[in-house]
């Protein structure tokens, strides 16, 4: 029975015998454990009073950082959002604003 690779145990200090044979990785989506949120220079913020849950922002996120649950969007995944601002631009209700900084 194959086991998922624990990607948190493989890093730039790992000895050769801890590097997976053929650099193969078992189990999907391990990138979630790598945060890209600190790339941001601007941060999207939702005004929940204005948000109508139209979801038009959700498919436009290049970083899968607008989670949808039970047909409704949740708050941003700030661990991964890179602050590109696409969501703010597409929101027809101006419910998302970009704030300076992380």
């Amino acid at each position: 029975m194959s086991k998922a690779t624990d990607v948190t145990k493989i890093n730039e200090k790992s000895p050769y015998y801890d590097i997976t044979p053929g650099n193969q990785i078992y189990g999907g989506g391990g990138a979630r454990k790598f945060t890209t949120g600190e790339w941001r220079t601007e941060t999207p913020v939702v005004d929940w009073d204005k948000c109508t849950q139209c979801l038009l922002c959700t498919p436009c996120c290049p970083d899968s950082s607008i989670p949808v649950k039970d047909g409704k969007r949740e708050d941003f995944d700030y661990d991964h959002c890179k602050g590109c601002g696409i969501c703010a631009k597409v929101c027809p209700f101006k419910a998302i604003t970009m704030k300076e900084g992380i």
């Binding site: 194959s2 650099n23 078992y26 999907g28």
Partner: peptide, 17 residues
């Protein structure tokens, strides 16, 4: 169990590979 193969693995991993 899905598997990913053929990564970008730069100098920190290449020599060990």
């Amino acid at each position: 169990m899905p598997m990913a193969i053929g990564p970008y693995a730069n100098s920190p991993f290449y020599m060990e590979t």
